Amino acid sequence: MSTKKVWFVTGASKGLGLALVKKLLANGYRVAATSRSVESLIHEAGPVSEEFLPLAMDVTSDNNVKEAVAKTVDHFGSIDVVVNNAGFGLVGTLEELSDEEVRDNFNVNVFGPLNVIRHVAPHMRHQKSGHIFNISSIGGYSGGFPGFGIYCSTKFAMAGFSEALAEEMKGFNVHATVVYPGYFRTNFLSKGSIKTSASPIDDYKSARESEKAHLNQIDGNQSNDPEKAAEALITVSEQADPAVHLFLGADASEIAHQKIKLIEEALSSNEQLSKSTLIVADQKQ
């Protein structure tokens, strides 16, 4: 297994990102890690070295991302694997979340990764190799979580552009994988990480119950280990023909199967109605 690939990991100062960075360094990979605070990266993973490059980067700033990518190429000579991990959770129904709150979530979770892709793609095209991981969520495959509609929609967006990216970059031997993690024991649901609506509406009982369950019961009791998720990403990065879709966690797999069953039932129940829209040849004028 190659131990010299250069990884570029965003959102690397905590959670899955930090677990991945530490695992990569322990296994001999070279790593550029980004966060809004370079001090937190240095504290957690060490100073600049031949193997590690901590970078302060705001994913919502296209110029800032461009500079970070350029610094990584200057430092290591290439970028082989990208992990678009930076993002945050947002709780609130579609009615109660403000335009500003929604746009903030999309700016970080959707437009941030797109900024990264825009600036790493030329390097990967020219070297005719690479792998881009976009960290979505099982909520990016199944959106039936009341109060998480906007967050889920940002993760659905990641899945959509990842599928297109896989096709667009195929001719350059560059792979794209969208990752759907289930519940991992990180600080993702902790105060200071997840954001909630500034103007909640009491009428939305199911959303309030879902919010309470996630912030009070699920947080700290997640069933999946981020260390094992990091190992899984490394394993997939070394595969010759990696899958475009990667579900991480038994819970993610179960929810995916439930969604697939739901779609199959919906297709079957309205199949004749769906086909009824076809233009019949002898009815053409």
Score class of each variant (00 low, 15 high):
Ala121Glu: 13
Asn224Leu: 09
Gln217Glu: 12
Gly182Ala: 03
Ala157Leu: 08
Arg36Met: 09
Ala266Ile: 06
Gly17Asp: 00
Val108Glu: 01
Ser197Leu: 03
Ala32Phe: 02
Ser2Asn: 14
Ala243Trp: 02
Ser274Asn: 09
Arg118Lys: 15
Arg118His: 14
Leu215Pro: 05
Lys14Gly: 00
Ser193Asp: 10
Val244Pro: 05
Gly17Pro: 06
Met158Tyr: 06
Gly77Val: 10
Gly192Met: 03
Lys212Ala: 14
Leu189Trp: 01
Gly15Lys: 00
Val9Met: 05
Phe111Lys: 06
Thr235Val: 09
Ile135Ser: 07
Gly92Ser: 07
Val236His: 06
Tyr180Lys: 09
Gly140Lys: 10
Glu101Gly: 02
Gln258His: 10
Lys22Pro: 05
Leu90Pro: 07
Thr10Ile: 08
Asn115Cys: 04
Gly144Met: 03
Glu231Cys: 09
Asn221Met: 01
Met124Val: 09
Val108Asp: 02
Glu67Val: 15
Asn134His: 06
Ser40Met: 06
Phe106Lys: 10
Val81Lys: 00
Asp99Trp: 01
Lys212Tyr: 02
Val38Cys: 02
Ala68Gln: 12
Val280Ile: 12
Ser197Val: 07
Lys275Val: 00
Tyr141Trp: 11
Tyr204Ile: 06
Glu168Asn: 11
Thr154Val: 05
Ser162Phe: 08
Glu96Gly: 08
Glu227Asn: 14
Ala12Asn: 02
Ile117Leu: 13
Leu215Ile: 11
Ser40Val: 09
Asp202Met: 01
Val82Met: 04
Phe156Asp: 11
Lys71Phe: 04
Glu227Ser: 15
Ala229Trp: 02
Gly15Ser: 05
Ile117Phe: 01
Leu246Gln: 04
Ser98Glu: 02
Leu278Ile: 15
Asn115Ala: 07
Gly15Cys: 07
Arg208Trp: 12
Phe76Thr: 02
Leu278Tyr: 07
Leu55Asn: 08
Arg208Gln: 13
Gly143Pro: 13
Phe145Pro: 10
Ile255Phe: 09
Leu262Glu: 13
Thr186His: 00
Ala166Tyr: 02
Val48Arg: 13
Ser129Phe: 04
Ser61Glu: 03
Asn173Met: 09
Met124Trp: 11
Phe184Tyr: 14
Asn187Leu: 03
Pro146Asp: 00
Val179Leu: 04
Gln258Asp: 14
Asp282Ser: 13
Arg103Asn: 13
Arg208Gly: 13
His214Ala: 12
Arg185Pro: 12
Tyr183Asn: 13
Lys191Glu: 15
Asn224Lys: 00
Ala207Asn: 12
Ser2Trp: 07
Glu168Trp: 07
Tyr180Asn: 11
Asn173Phe: 08
Thr10Lys: 01
Ile279Tyr: 05
Phe184Asn: 00
Ala45Pro: 02
Ala243His: 11
Ile132His: 03
Asn216Phe: 06
Ser129Leu: 08
Ile42Tyr: 00
Tyr141Gly: 15
Lys212Leu: 08
Ile279Met: 11
Ser98Thr: 15
Val65Met: 09
Ser274Ala: 13
Thr10Trp: 11
Asp282Phe: 11
His126Ser: 15
Leu248Val: 11
Trp7Val: 12
